[in-house]
């Protein structure tokens, strides 16, 4: 699509079971900030069934208006019906920018929509800016995060980006007024792609990693399931969450949802502690925005030390039991 006569910033309001994904609110916060610079309007797009009540939430978190497609064919999420609705809306309303979360859903949907309307898309953005002409600059990590690229989409519209959850801040909600508009959906009843047989989800347990003030993360160097308990205990006494790199997930010490980095979560806690972590780029890109970073590794050449404020070159087994005890004494005092 060509760029003339496009305006407005769109945010895809991702939901499952009428529960908004956190990243939606983060995107609205960012979109609001960008709209402040270019005097644009922020529109949230929500698709599903029985989701009208969420529209007010979207206004409260920064949308100026909400387009609601409430239709049984849009529940649960399926790639092809969602792509067709986006194509129709984009062709009708000509948004300048369209943002989605880099979630399981967004990562599947955004490229399909971009290809359908023949525009550019950047993936897993960690920052978004406007240049002096109002073009969207999309900041993305590549090569496991070792390279930071800035991508632009000069001649095609909308300018599309998926954004890493946890990298942008939602606004504090306040009661706001705005237009809530319902959209007619007329989809064909065939050729809508795979049939959904079953959806199974477990409630997330404990403190979500992205919200924790303290994250204690362990890596391959922790060595065993037995010693992994020390990592969990330290997180426990600090009131924090446990994070991990890839190997402990493969070993079964930790869950995939705890993984930090390019293929996991991005965290920005007040304190990050890394135990037995070597510091490959894939992990570092998910934690290097932490306010304070303390790392313990017996290998004096561990790369993680390049991204640390406080470095301890020592076997963590000599440090953690005493540290846990000291902190516990202090907290209970």
């Amino acid at each position: 699509m060509n760029k003339n006569d496009h305006d407005g910033i769109w945010v895809f309001a991702e939901q499952r079971n009428a529960e908004l994904h956190e990243v939606t609110l983060e995107l609205l916060g960012k979109a609001r900030g960008l709209a402040g610079q270019n005097q644009g309007k922020v529109t949230a797009i929500i698709l599903g069934q029985g989701i009208k009540p969420l529209a007010q939430t979207l206004l409260n978190y920064g949308a100026d208006s909400v387009l609601v497609a409430d239709n049984p064919v849009l529940d649960p999420y399926r790639l092809i019906p969602y792509s067709l609705v986006f194509e129709k809306l984009i062709k009708e309303y000509h948004p300048e920018i369209l943002l989605m979360g880099a979630t399981f859903m967004g990562v599947e949907l955004a490229p399909r929509v971009a290809a359908r309307v023949r525009t550019g898309l950047s993936a897993h953005c960690v920052d978004l800016k406007l240049d002096k002409d109002g073009k969207l600059l999309q900041v993305v990590p590549g090569w496991g995060g070792g390279v930071i690229a800035t991508i632009a989409c000069p001649d095609h519209r909308p300018q599309m980006a998926t954004v890493m959850p946890g990298t942008m801040k939602p606004l504090s909600p306040e009661e706001r007024k705005g237009e809530i508009k319902e959209i007619e959906i007329n989809l064909p009843d065939k050729d809508l792609g795979p049939k959904v047989l079953e959806i199974k989800r477990e409630k997330a347990e404990g403190l979500p990693l992205e919200k924790a003030e303290v994250v204690v993360a362990g890596g391959w160097g922790v060595g065993s399931r037995e010693d992994w308990k020390q990592v969990e205990e330290l997180a426990g006494v600090l009131g924090g969450a446990v994070g991990t790199t890839r190997p402990p997930v493969d070993e079964g010490w930790a869950e995939e949802g705890q993984m930090i980095g390019q293929s996991g979560k991005t965290v920005r806690p007040k304190l990050y502690m890394g135990i037995g972590i070597s510091g490959v780029m894939h992990h570092v890109v998910g934690m290097d925005q932490s306010e304070h970073i303390i790392t313990i590794n017996s290998d004096a050449n561990a790369e993680i030390f390049e991204t640390s404020d406080v470095i301890v070159v020592e076997d963590f087994r000599k440090i953690l039991p005493k540290l846990i005890q000291k902190i516990r004494e202090r907290v209970e005092r």
Partner: peptide, 10 residues
């Protein structure tokens, strides 16, 4: 998907 999975027939 997050915290679970979807079974599909295609």
């Amino acid at each position: 998907i997050e915290h679970g999975y979807v079974r599909l027939e295609a």
